[in-house]
Design a protein around this nucleic acid. Structure first.
Lengths: 344, 344
DNA sequence: CTACGCTTTTGCAGCGCTGCAAAAGACAGC
DNA sequence: GCTGTCTTTTGCAGCGCTGCAAAAGCGTAG
């Protein structure tokens, strides 16, 4: 195999020092037009390409950021990831993706002190829940931005939407429809993270604001936020003596699973049970029925996270941890509003 | 910021040469137990972690493979990716993900000669279509495995399922149901890749084997394989004087979009129109109705691709390009078989 | 006691690049 | 012509590791 072209080769051909070639390649300022041209010609002629590895080693940075998500095949994450990759790429960074399969041990290892040093300059972390142990072990020098979960630890940034308000709006929407027995699927009272708990809080607040008290047996916990969980939880709810007439699901996948169960029992959505989801994944816009949902601004979450992480990477003295809220909105579709198309 | 611990630091503490520390860290053979222990103690005490960048530079490899997909938020790709990442991780490789947004220029750049040298040791490439220009420009020294698309170029491997047979099975299934006017959505007669064309071939073959001729106006081309495309194509089909009573969709997303259109017009699936998809994404198992589909063995595709790529990376003389077939099966669900649950 | 073959350890060079500081040039003013 | 200032170019060291080959250690045999 032919040896690759190096800076030195170019330098020799152009009759300048290798440092000057480096300057040209990197577009540094003080190079005369004459020199630049000569070097450029040599670069072109030899087909020189910088060796990223060597550059990284010399600079002590990798030009890569890691994005850690629990599951890649969850549409919410893959949609978010898509935006993150785009944002990072636009800023000259590559994205290394890691899925933890929801294993807290794996999540921990990722932000632990000294983990895989220098393979990435920083981490965007979307944990299932924020493990306290993980936070304790975390490398304070590792630039970190956390998505979704919140915490009091000040050493990193957090980007997410206002879950409590969003959940309250979702519940309000169901109450506005005149529903009497509203269930919630997705609580995780014992989880380390508190995203689920914030949604439950919003759910309760919406009731309280109208002087209502949610029935505790209608608040269902699920291990994850996927279709099977939703399907199963809904089956349980429909088996109750007094089944719900509306359900607030903590993710669109849960909602899709729940709808599946409702329909397969011969009941109608939303006539018999209205369903609302969370995340606004594409599936929900094309399902039968389409799913009313809370839509977080994923593009905004992604770019904010990337920008903030790069800032953190670039600064010598780590900036204080910031709490950042991306906007969200309620998107009303058939699963609560019914079929709008005439033909039905 | 404290300087990081290096091999040399460990060597000093352990009273050996840095090369010996390297040997211990990498688990090389000829190290006495005594030495190994002493070094290990020093490693632990200082909390030494190898600098991956330096190792890579010295070894001339990056320990990373790139996976190039058109769209990350397409469930088929994200499900596949999940398996690829897992397989690569198990073999000590990291995965760098790149999405091309379907831009052929971008796809080309990725496998082009000298592209981003050394950031990755090889590429698993899942192109929209195999651009001839891209193949011509491709770096022959870059280990490459292509998913889905086939070609006669012998310089790399190909992993996929037998599209023609699978498509024929799908069509047969619809014919077996007694459907008279079967449409196909997803042909791409002018695309550079031929995956879509192979599916159309299978579609035709199934007809021919029964002495039938498919109606040409029922074979619909789409730019991509997503929900909107499916929805739109189906709308067109339903507007025909003689609309189809069954549809073979070239992806589950297309099928979901098509079903959406059918249902929103007040027609029933499968009673009025039977629908079959392709890819077996999770969505199709929880939609209303659930979607009959061709299920490629994604796990097998992923591990085969990774194994083959690593083999290619490891070998000095590139092995000949191989054509590899992963198994697939037909999974029959409600969109062709109707509701099996009693209650409906 | 020396020679020999084997295992274990070492030293050095170098992967290809950039940071730093010094050297060389260019130009103006006295 | 000389000095001082500013711009451009250079040389060197070193990022932290591994490949290679030589050196050292070690046990056995002659």
């Amino acid at each position: 195999m032919r040896r690759e072209v190096t800076l030195r080769d170019v330098a020799e051909l152009a009759g300048v020092s290798s440092r000057t070639v480096s300057n040209v390649v990197n577009g540094y300022a003080n190079v005369t037009e004459r020199t630049r041209e000569r070097v450029q010609r040599a670069v072109d002629e030899l087909g020189y390409r910088p060796n990223v590895l060597a550059r990284n080693l010399a600079q002590g940075r990798s030009g890569q950021i890691a994005v850690v998500v629990p599951y890649l095949d969850t549409p919410y994450f893959s949609e978010l990831l898509q935006s993150v990759i785009r944002a990072a790429r636009a800023r000259g960074y590559n994205v290394l993706i890691d899925q933890t399969d929801g294993d807290p041990e794996h999540e921990r290892a990722f932000i632990a002190h000294g983990s895989r040093r220098l393979l990435f300059d920083g981490v965007i972390f979307s944990p299932l829940g924020l493990d306290q142990q993980a936070l304790a072990d975390r490398d304070p020098a590792l630039p970190l931005v956390v998505l979704g979960e919140r915490t009091s630890d000040g050493g990193f940034d957090h980007v997410g939407i206002d879950d409590v308000t969003a959940s309250r709006q979702a519940t309000d929407h169901l109450l506005d429809l005149g529903r009497q027995r509203i269930a919630a699927i997705g609580d995780q009272p014992y989880a380390t993270g508190e995203a689920a708990q914030r949604r439950t809080r919003g759910f309760r607040l919406a009731h309280q604001a109208r002087g209502l008290v949610p029935r505790e047996d209608l608040i269902i916990s699920t291990p994850r936020f996927n279709r099977p969980d939703g399907a199963q939880a809904m089956a349980h709810l429909l088996d109750l003596a007094e089944p719900p007439d509306a359900v607030f699901c903590y993710s669109d996948l849960v909602a899709l699973g729940a709808i599946r169960t409702i329909v397969s029992r011969g009941l109608r959505v939303p006539e018999d049970v209205a369903v609302i989801g969370y995340d606004d994944i594409e599936d929900g816009a094309y399902s039968n029925p389409t799913v009313t949902t809370i839509s977080p601004d994923k593009e905004m979450i992604a770019t904010t996270a990337v920008d903030r992480l790069l800032l953190r990477i670039a600064s010598d003295t780590p900036p204080p941890g910031l709490e950042m809220r991306a906007p969200h909105k309620l998107i009303i579709r058939e699963s609560t509003a019914g079929r709008t198309t005439a033909t039905a």
